[in-house]
Design a protein around this nucleic acid. Structure first.
Length: 698
DNA sequence: GTTGCAATAT
DNA sequence: CATATTGCAA
């Protein structure tokens, strides 16, 4: 039989495998003594070495006592003391032995369940000896990859799946036969014969070829992990090794990641330039906001494992830039630069040179960053001029200082949101996205539609890398719903976003974003900033309404055990201004659609992530992400790394349904009454401190 | 030792 | 052809 030939060839060199599968050690488990006896006899006829037990618990005990005592486990599914699936799972977790499930029921669901839980085979009772004769193949298959790595896997770890690990399978789950839809090149459907021979030849020699990494295959989608890792680290800081560490995917190499990163960057570059073109095409007039939503692509997690990168779903923008998106009706077409162009204060990005080259955002108009038409980034501010529109950024304070910046606008219906991710290198890695949106303005409101938003970063201190960071990104846990734009900086910072009233007399279309010390006057004062070196401002003038929206989010890992997302703040301003306070110090994160907040009126908004105080564990990261409203709306749920649903958009839209916001609600309400000075003690288990929050508010 | 880029392989 | 892998210089 070819099987025998193949087997002989394959195991021929392995001394102890000469006799294989004769004497293969099998643990048979079945609560029914009769069935067990029958099974035992059949197995013995196959010349296996059989050990039996009628208790799953006992079986587990035996297995644990000596993990190398058995080569394979055959277990009944239905057992009184322990579900066969449970046993299966435990075995898979603890010893990575092939497990064959036995059941009298051919229920597809059961079979599926068994396979999903890692069963390498699922046999129906009564079992025929013909079936048992072949079960050794499961042992062989599993041992095969380890043969050459025998030394490495003596620990009993489940490293035999190194190859499979590259596919993103969690080690705990046997990967032998599942995922029918998945095509893995290293996996021949026929388990033996010539295929094995050729494989063997390759394995044996140094010419063994690496299995190709399937970044997009499979439910867990390595690319998602990749994106998450990149976002976690921040675009510039995302280097292959760090990404690899974060991803923590077995079998994946740094080279794999480097390659993928390369491709990813190229993609972003391309995407951005394309978008720039589109933006240009769109022009200031008639461009339909919804047809081009660069930020929509921030949701990298909507990408499904097709192996194709979709513009709509990839996550192209490094979040740590300041991005000004002036689009649409605001008519902010800057000297031919896309009206939705992205701009960055060079100080916020430590290296424009690099960015200009590597960051698509700066490739707009195919010009070096500092030579953008009308945009100057050579100093600490960027100015964009087009007609009445001016955008300028200036970076302010030193990196080590707490910083704040204020965003203000007089656009009647501007929506504003500010978030922060702390990136030490950037001094402040505020994420800022300014986006013009088409929206009806209903009048200027009592303040003439002016608004401002202050963002304060109180804790730019770098955080030690969380030891648990590696757990954050998945390990097979469901994270497919992560927003792609989540960023996980290495340290957190306090962020406060406060809606404030703009100074009277500001131009009707005026937006300022300034950086200043917390103690400074937080108010944007005209533009451009008169202080060249230490204040930053962004002035935006347009004759039409402009919305700014920036959402910051913080995702945090607490000792690697959990992730927290701090969210984003948005402010809808128009006439009255409403700001959204979000804090997901607990499990939550929240995103509030500004559109739904319009009703909330005159509230000054304070948003602060206080958790980063040294006393709590939020220091591991303070990711930020930006979404535009539509994007956020598109996300149904966000999940934390434990697979818990952190936020349900619908709930959020209907109000801060998330319980974690209850206190915040109160806080916001209180704050909205301009009672910041009062201490509102709302402490949660995470040390959320309303008082400090209040103090951060203007 | 890493990284990023370019050449090469699939 | 797109993408993964490999090679190599910085």
């Amino acid at each position: 039989m070819t099987v025998e030939v193949g087997r002989a060839n394959l195991v021929g060199e392995n001394e102890d495998m000469d006799q294989f599968p004769i004497g293969m050690r099998i643990l048979a488990v079945d609560d029914d003594p009769i069935c067990l006896k029958v099974l035992e006899n059949l197995l013995r006829k196959c010349q296996y070495h059989v050990t039996t037990t009628n208790q799953a618990v006992q079986a587990l005990k035996m297995l644990r006592e000596n993990k190398n005592r058995f080569d394979l486990v055959i277990s009944d599914v239905n057992m009184p003391d322990m579900d066969g699936f449970k046993l299966l799972e435990l075995v898979g977790l603890e010893m990575d032995l092939p497990v064959i499930m036995l059941s009298a029921h051919s229920n597809t669901k059961l079979v599926k369940k068994g396979v999903i839980h890692g069963a390498c085979d699922y046999l129906l009772k009564p079992v025929r000896i013909e079936e048992l004769k072949n079960i050794w193949q499961h042992v062989l298959r599993r041992k095969k990859p380890s043969a050459k790595n025998q030394n490495k896997r003596t620990n009993g770890n489940n490293t035999s799946q190194s190859v499979e690990g590259a596919k993103g399978f969690p080690p705990a789950i046997s990967t032998d036969n599942e995922k029918p839809g998945k095509r893995q090149k290293d996996q021949d459907d026929d388990e033996e014969g010539g295929e094995e021979d050729s494989t063997y030849e390759n394995d044996d020699s140094s010419t063994q070829k690496k299995p190709r990494v399937n970044w997009y295959d499979g439910d867990e989608n390595l690319h998602r992990k990749f994106v998450a890792a990149v976002n976690f680290l921040g675009y510039e800081k995302a280097v292959p090794k760090k990404i690899l560490d974060l991803m923590n995917v077995e079998g994946l190499t740094r080279e794999n990641v480097a390659s993928h990163l390369q491709k990813y960057r190229q993609y972003l570059k391309k995407l951005c330039s394309e978008e720039a073109q589109q933006c240009n095409m769109m022009g200031a007039f008639g461009g339909k906001q919804t047809s081009f939503r660069p930020m929509a692509s921030l949701n990298g997690f909507s990408m499904t494992g097709i192996g194709r990168l979709s513009n709509a779903t990839f996550s192209p923008y490094p979040s740590r830039e300041i991005v000004g998106q002036l689009n649409s009706t605001s008519g902010l077409s800057l000297h031919g630069i896309a009206s939705s162009g992205m701009f960055q204060s060079h100080k916020w990005s430590s290296s424009l040179n690099t960015l200009g080259k590597s960051h698509p955002a700066f490739l707009l108009a195919n010009e070096p960053p500092h030579t953008f038409n009308g945009i100057s980034t050579s100093s600490d501010h960027i100015q964009l001029h087009r007609d009445k529109c001016t955008l300028s950024f200036k970076e302010s304070n030193s990196i080590n200082d707490a910083s704040s910046f204020t965003v203000s606008t007089s656009f009647p219906d501007a929506r504003m949101a500010v978030g922060s991710s702390s990136n030490y290198d950037f001094g402040s890695s505020h994420l800022l996205m300014l986006r013009g949106q088409k929206q009806q303005i209903q009048g200027g409101g009592e303040f003439g539609g002016q608004s401002s938003l202050k963002v304060t970063l109180d804790n730019p201190e770098p955080l030690a890398n969380g030891t648990g960071v590696s757990n954050i990104l998945g390990h097979g846990e469901s994270n497919k719903n992560w927003p792609g734009s989540i960023q996980l900086p290495k340290f957190s910072s306090n962020v406060s976003v406060t809606g404030i009233y703009p100074p009277a007399g500001m131009p009707a279309t005026y937006l300022t974003i300034s950086s200043a010390q917390p103690d400074n006057n937080n108010f944007p004062i005209g533009f451009p900033s008169t202080s060249v070196d230490s204040s930053s401002q962004l002035d935006l003038r347009g004759d039409t309404q402009c919305y700014e929206e920036l959402i910051g989010s913080v995702v945090e890992a607490m000792n690697g055990r959990s992730k927290q997302q701090w969210d984003a703040a948005k402010q809808d301003y128009y006439g009255n201004h409403s700001s959204i306070v979000r804090d997901s110090l607990v499990s939550g994160n929240s995103v509030v659609d500004p559109l739904n907040q319009i009703a909330n009126q005159n509230n000054a908004i304070c948003l602060e992530n206080i958790g980063s105080s040294s006393t709590n564990q939020l220091n591991d990261g303070a990711p930020t992400f930006i979404h535009d409203g539509a994007e956020i709306s598109a996300m149904d749920t966000w999940m934390n790394y434990d697979g818990k649903i952190l936020m349900d958009q619908t709930k959020l839209q209907s109000g801060f349904a998330n319980s974690s916001f209850n206190s915040l609600d109160e806080l916001v309400n209180a704050l909205s009454k301009q009672d910041q000075d009062q201490s509102i003690q709302i402490n949660d288990e995470f040390g959320f401190d309303a008082q400090s929050l209040g103090s951060s508010c203007i």
